[in-house]
Design a protein around this nucleic acid. Structure first.
Lengths: 179, 179
DNA sequence: GGCTAAAGTGAGCCGGTGCTCATGATGTGG
DNA sequence: CCACATCATGAGCACCGGCTCACTTTAGCC
């Protein structure tokens, strides 16, 4: 692959991440191209379909989140790591429409069902650790945690969720998870 | 207003409610017209803008929910009425994309900011009643309850939230609200 | 430096959608 | 029953966004 092609690919990915984070998946490909400083044709050369571009962005995002969850599960304090990850994800979802979009892709709308499932694994580890540490009730299941997470992320990108409200809302959910 | 006009208006509203509930606000006006059994022009005669049609549907929906909340606040058991209303709304949101759409209209995207605020009032009454009855912690605020409600409604219309999961997830939130 | 394959370009095609308007149909008061 | 205002109709317009492709530019190798 030629050097300029690699360069442009990177610029397109960066621009797409910013544009889709701000305007959601409905943002136009032209806007991505403009932000990347390339022509439309170049975007479609690297990503034959808008869906491919979206999937690339979301896979990248989910991979980063998965890595963070794994790190937390390995090195974090089991009693607080799950809650910390919640906080982390909801904060990110608040200004990245991509997060909520990716998480709710159960139907495979963006082709990132597998990465989402992969994210579930380390979250399961976080949950198990929290339960062993006595920080979360034993009867809480992973699917419930994921449901709460997607719901909170969805809600976070809508009006009025300033930092204070976000924290207080999360606190209520955390209280519901504790024994 | 002529009789046939009233009849068609009602059919359009009914069709729009069904179509938007199923496919969300992005559904086409033509589909609404087809379902109502009228021509496109007729839809635009009654609702000059697609936004007007959406607003009408959502206002109607929110008014019904508001009425239900008021009834519950007046006649229901204060200790359980708030939870019952949560259950009710989330269940409806699960198969009506309109609910989540309307609730998250803080930015006035669909012009139903006022009806949403009106819905907040009786919910505040439900919250106050639950707190007096000792069913909800005293330090829980209305905005937190509304945030949880919107988040859960958003999450409810996405993959995997079968009845069981929905109930268990709500149970966790309820546990977080209790003293 | 010259050559070639790889990459970039952007006007344009196409399908879809919100909305209009000239025309025809119809309900209704007198 | 008739006249007319109200209403319904649907082809068509304007616009938008995904995507293509003939053509131009350029990177990298000899």
């Amino acid at each position: 692959m030629r050097a300029d092609a690699r360069r442009n690919r990177a610029r397109i990915l960066e621009a797409a991440a910013a544009v889709f984070a701000e305007h959601g998946p409905s943002a136009s490909t032209e806007e991505v191209a403009a932000r990347a400083g390339v022509a439309i044709g170049t975007v479609f050369r690297h990503f034959p379909t808008k869906g491919d571009l979206l999937a690339a962005i979301m896979k990248d995002l989910l991979a980063r989140l998965t890595a963070e969850a794994e790190t937390l599960a390995k090195d974090g304090d089991p009693a607080t790591a799950l809650f910390a990850f919640f906080e982390r994800m909801v904060r990110e979802a608040a200004d990245k429409r991509t997060v909520a979009g990716a998480l709710s892709d159960g139907g495979g709308e963006f082709g990132v069902a597998a990465p989402v499932q992969a994210l579930g694994e380390p979250i399961g580890a976080l949950l198990a650790g929290a339960q062993r540490a006595g920080a979360v009730r034993e009867d809480v299941r992973l699917d419930e945690v994921l449901a709460l997470l997607t719901g909170l992320c969805q809600g976070a990108l809508h009006a009025g969720w300033d930092t204070g409200l976000r924290g207080r809302t999360l606190a209520i959910v955390f209280a519901g998870l504790r024994p």
